[in-house]
Nucleic acid binder design. Sequence first.
DNA 1: GCCTTGAATGCAACCGTTTGCAAAATAGTA
DNA 2: TACTATTTTGCAAACGGTTGCATTCAAGGC
Lengths: 338, 338
Amino acid sequence: MSVTLKEIAKIANVNISTVSRALNDSPLITQETKDKILAIAQEMNYFPNSLARGLVSHKSETLGLILPKIFFLQGPFFSEVLRGIEQVSVENGYNILIASDTGKDRDKNFPFNLTRAKRIDGMLIINEQQRISNLIALKKERFPFVFINRYIKDQDINCVASNNVQGGKIATEHLIEKGHKRIGIITGSFEMAASHERFEGYRNALKEKELVFDKSLMQEGMFEQGIETGTDCAMKLLEHEEPPTAIFAFSDEIAIGAMQAVKNKGLKIPDDIAIIGYDNIEYSAHLTPPLTTISQDPFTIGYESCQMLIDELCDRKPAKNHLQIPVKLVVRDSCGTE
Amino acid sequence: MSVTLKEIAKIANVNISTVSRALNDSPLITQETKDKILAIAQEMNYFPNSLARGLVSHKSETLGLILPKIFFLQGPFFSEVLRGIEQVSVENGYNILIASDTGKDRDKNFPFNLTRAKRIDGMLIINEQQRISNLIALKKERFPFVFINRYIKDQDINCVASNNVQGGKIATEHLIEKGHKRIGIITGSFEMAASHERFEGYRNALKEKELVFDKSLMQEGMFEQGIETGTDCAMKLLEHEEPPTAIFAFSDEIAIGAMQAVKNKGLKIPDDIAIIGYDNIEYSAHLTPPLTTISQDPFTIGYESCQMLIDELCDRKPAKNHLQIPVKLVVRDSCGTE
DNA sequence: GCCTTGAATGCAACCGTTTGCAAAATAGTA
DNA sequence: TACTATTTTGCAAACGGTTGCATTCAAGGC
C-alpha cells in the first residue's frame, strides 16, 4: 500500500536502518547518503507510519480533549478554547483527539481507555462537574493532564481557568461604584464551579465595601437555558418587596432574559435598574442598551492549557501549574456610561 | 509499563496467541480457557494497545475532522455538527481527530499527512472554500472522505449539506406571500458556497412568481462580521431611490444588524419593512420583534455525514452519497405573523 | 606497511498485536 | 486398540519502524 522504509532501502541500496537515520536526521551518517535517501523518499512520497513509530517510542503525539457527558458546548466560548488549543498543538506537532463521555457501560473506563490504549499522550479535560475521585484516579495513573476552566486548589493538579472570583468581584464593584447598594444576582446552577466562584467574588466585593449580603436578592438559574432563566429569575427579583437597583447576571444570555423582564415591567435600563452580564458574547454590544459585561479570554485559556500539557509531556516542568486567566470589565450602557 | 498480552499469557500459562484469541472472542478456543483468560485480563486491568493493533490491521479506528485554514467555528452551528458526528462515531467505536490547516510550509501535504501516516481511516471535511483540485487529489488517493455542508455535483464525491437552495427559496417565497415584490438581499461572501446556493433559491422563487431580479437590491456582506455587515448593507439598501419593502438576510447575525439599521432610520418592522434571517440562532426568538428565519439542522448534518463515512469504511455502500438536509421556515414576527 | 582510531553502515532485536499454519490434544470410528 | 477427524493450542512471521551493538572502511600515526 504505502511506501515503507524497506522499499526506500531497496532502491537506495542501503540498509533500512540507514534510511531510518537519514529521515530522522541522525548525525551518524554522511551528508551524501542522507541527501540521496531524502531525495528518494521525497520522490516516492514517503510518510512515516505513525502507528509503527508510536509502538516503539511509546508516544502517539496526540492529545486528548476530554469533554463532559452531554457536551453542551454551544456558544463561541468553546470554539475559542479549541482554537487556542489547536494553535499550540500544531506548533508542537501534536494532534487533537476529541472524546466525550457517553456514560455507556462499555466506556465505564472513560477516559482511561484512551490513555491505556496509548492512543493519547496526555489529556485536556473540560468538565465542570468532574468528581474529585476521578481526579485522584488520574493522579494514580501518573497520566499527564490539565484541567481546563476549573480551578482546583490541590497543588498537584494542573489547571488553567478563567478567574471567576475576580470576575464576580469586578462586576460587583462596578455596580457599587455606580452607587448601588442592593445588588441582585442571578447565578447559574451551583453544580457549576463557575457559579460558586463568581458568587465568591460577589461576596468579597460586598464585604470590602461593607455591604451586607442579602440572600433574598439571589436567584439560582441555569446556564443552559440562559434567556428563559434570566426572565424568570429577574421577575422574581422585581417582585421583591424591596427590589434590587441593579442585577448581576452570571451570563450574557441570562442578562438578555433579565433585560426583557425589566422592559416588560416598564422599567428603564439603566435608569431604573442597572444590569451587568458575563461573557461578552457578540450580541451584547448590539442590545438596547448595549450590555456592560465581563469579558473572558477563552483563546488564552485554551492556549495556555495546551502549552502546560505539552511542557509536562516534554518533562519541562512548567513554571506554574495553576493558571488563572484574567477577565476584563467591558463598560457599555446598561449600568450607565463611564 | 502497561499490561501486555505477554504478561497475561505468562500468568494464564498459555501462549500469547491464545490470549489474543480469547480477547477477540475467537470461536477457535474453549469457553473455559476464554473465561479464565478474560478473568485474568480484567484482573490485571488490561487494555489492548491500539497502536500495535492498528499496525497489523491497517486501521486506526479514528476519523479525521478536517477544518478550514483559519477556522472560525463560532456559533452553535459547528458545535451541533460536532455533536452529531460524535454521537455516530462513539456508537461505532471510532475516535475523532480534529485537524485544521495551518497553511504552514511543513503541512503543505495537509490533510494527506494524516491519511498517509495511517493516523486516520477517513475524513470529514468542513471547508467552504476547498479547491476542487484538492478534491481530485483526494479521489486519486482513494481515501474515504465526505464533505460536510458543501454540496458537490460530482456524483463520485460524498457530501452532506444543508439544503441552501431550498432555504433561499422558502425564505423568499414567504416574503412574496406576504405581498412583497421588491425584496432586498444581504448575502454572505460569494466565496462561500452557501451564498451562491441561497442566492440561487432566491432567484428561483422570484422566477416562479414571475418577479424580476433587480441587481441593485443585492448587497454582498461577510458572514464573519455579521452584525456590522448587516447594518452597513441595510443602510445602502435603505438609501436606494426605490428601497425594498423586505430584506432577506443570509444569516441571523446579518439580520440583527439590518434590524438595527432599520430602527435607526425610524422605520418599523415589519410594518415598514419586513426582515427574514437564516440560521435560527438562539437569540433570534428574543429580538424585538422576534425574527422570522430559516432553521437548519446541523446535528443531522453531522450525524449523517459521519454515518456515511463509516458506511464507506465498512464497505457498506451507502444508499445515497449525496444528502441534502432539509431546512425549515420558522415564522415569528419580523415579517408579520401568520 | 601495520595498527589504531573514528566514522559510516549493517545486523538483529524489539515495540505489542494478529493470524496462517503446524502441532498437540481430544473425540469419534471401526 | 489403533487410526482418522476434529478441536484446541502453540509457533513464528508479519505489521513498519527504532536503536544498541557489531562490522566495515578509510584515514592517520608510527
